[in-house]
Design a binder for these strands. Sequence first.
DNA 1: CTGTTAGCGCATTCAG
DNA 2: CTGAATGCGCTAACAG
Lengths: 347, 347
Amino acid sequence: MSGQKRSATRADVARLAGVSASTVTYALTGERSISDETRKRIMDAMAELDYTPNAMAQGLAGRRSGLIALSFPVGERGFESSDFEYVQAATDVLSRAGYQLLMWPNPIEDLDSLRRIVSQGLIDGVVLMEVRREDPRIPVLQSTRTPFVLIGRTDNESDCDWVDADFGQWGPMAIEHLAEEGHEHIAVIGLTEDMFTAGYGPVVRTEQNLVSAAKKAGVTLDIERVRPNIRAGKEAMETMLAGANPPTALIGFNQPAVIGAIEAIVSHGLSIPADFSLLQLGISPEAAETTFPAQTSIGVDGALLASTAARFLADSLAGASTGSEPRHFLGDAVFTDRGSTGPVPRK
Amino acid sequence: MSGQKRSATRADVARLAGVSASTVTYALTGERSISDETRKRIMDAMAELDYTPNAMAQGLAGRRSGLIALSFPVGERGFESSDFEYVQAATDVLSRAGYQLLMWPNPIEDLDSLRRIVSQGLIDGVVLMEVRREDPRIPVLQSTRTPFVLIGRTDNESDCDWVDADFGQWGPMAIEHLAEEGHEHIAVIGLTEDMFTAGYGPVVRTEQNLVSAAKKAGVTLDIERVRPNIRAGKEAMETMLAGANPPTALIGFNQPAVIGAIEAIVSHGLSIPADFSLLQLGISPEAAETTFPAQTSIGVDGALLASTAARFLADSLAGASTGSEPRHFLGDAVFTDRGSTGPVPRK
DNA sequence: CTGTTAGCGCATTCAG
DNA sequence: CTGAATGCGCTAACAG
């Protein structure tokens, strides 16, 4: 056993370097100038003792924990690989700014736990994911004066910092792409009304934009809203294909349902993209390439969104007190052609 | 502005309740007995002041942060919904034991960061996921005397606490199931050699068991090892089906590749399970039901694994000093019939 | 059953 | 350019 019982403290370093304790701190933070001579002695001492500052003590004394919570409620939707893109990007930016990310997977409704953790002084700021149109977490954070940023938007948009996809671009982009290829009758498979009333922002906005873009382009839309599962999507698609005037393309905003829809399309004797076109909204690259065929999609760069959010938060933590204007960021729509759309087939 | 600048401290509570500061602590921890009278006064005072103990100060004084890191390196494999099952289960158990989970997504090789975070005194223990046969994180944790538990195993099994799937059951169970249905020639699509040499434990163990079980059952195996992507799986399956004596069933241990394999099977004019049987190993329920058809599978209860690991860690944190025997747990194989296997077709 | 006293390791005044 | 003193909010002996 060669173990040192207790790890070295700042006092140990100071002693070994022959300086005072506070000088060690300043050598570390650079808050005031130090002679090269002294700095070197301190650095050497730190290296020799394998010194690492104690985070708790830093937090207590400096009223800054270096921890950021990522509120990542996992509801019906579950976890997708795309979600990790967000986590990863946020982690990168924040760690560069000296913060660690604390994942907080509790449900949105668990406000007591949220209140507790932010009151504990353990957390400097919060990134909120899966934001609802009226999000109960926000008042909690505001009342405890905890800095935060949203990935997503509430109905009251101007109220705080947020980043979000520019859903306004999705509908027009999707409709235009398909209209250009000659499609005049397009199926849409979205999410159920539940998601509407639960206030799931993207769903509402996107569908609205789709409708208005279709009107402008003179395209007929056949909208079905179903639960996010394969069977529901399959049934919805079968119904649409069995109609008198079946659609020649599908716009999906519901990945599990679209998997079922693909099955329905293929069973119907149609092949993609020769006979039928498929365009999926808001899907991650990973998920889009997990199906057969892979899905052409319109979405947002999640990493860009998350890293921007992280930057907003880091900035407002740096600027501490000042209540400058809220900052917003809209991520451009990204079109990725994976070959699942094509010109409308001749009869 | 009605904001209290600074949140209430233990001293404030003590003053308002008319007791000494330490009494407040003991009322909270129950470390020594207190008259009901006094306890009530303290509780009332805490409620009135909306008091929450400061986590940093608790950590500094009590040398216990209440934070557990979950080392969750995200490599080539990415993030799957099943992974969240682990996170969720671990979080539940640990929060009941008074801990928060800090997600640590850094790559396995990022040992400097790991060393730093555990030396900071910010973390009481670590749960390691994606454990390699020789995992470099382990020496780091041992040298810093940080309690930890593995989800997975190293080659040196007796060395520390771990939980893992009982892979020994998978091979026999898979072979027996298919053999009973009359299959005599079975394809296997596993992962590439890279994963072998990278020391990805499950891959190695499972394939070995598959081979020995097949020998015992008198079944012929046709093993292909491919990268985890759709195209590779499709090509591998096409090759096998084009052979002189094509297999009648597939055992997969590579989800993306199996998606491609399914496509190859269907294109070949075979339908599942009437003409061809499919059995997937080690896949999450979510992923198994994301394909068409859904996949019958053999795997492990991830939530059980993770919660057991969490319990191991919580226990060893409670029993602090004592170095009792390492604890191990093997999760039973779980067979889930999703209808993708059936009797071998008559010629 | 309760109060008093030291620290935990560091940031930050205040003095040179 | 550097040192000394104070306190962050709490736990854990030590005293009754």
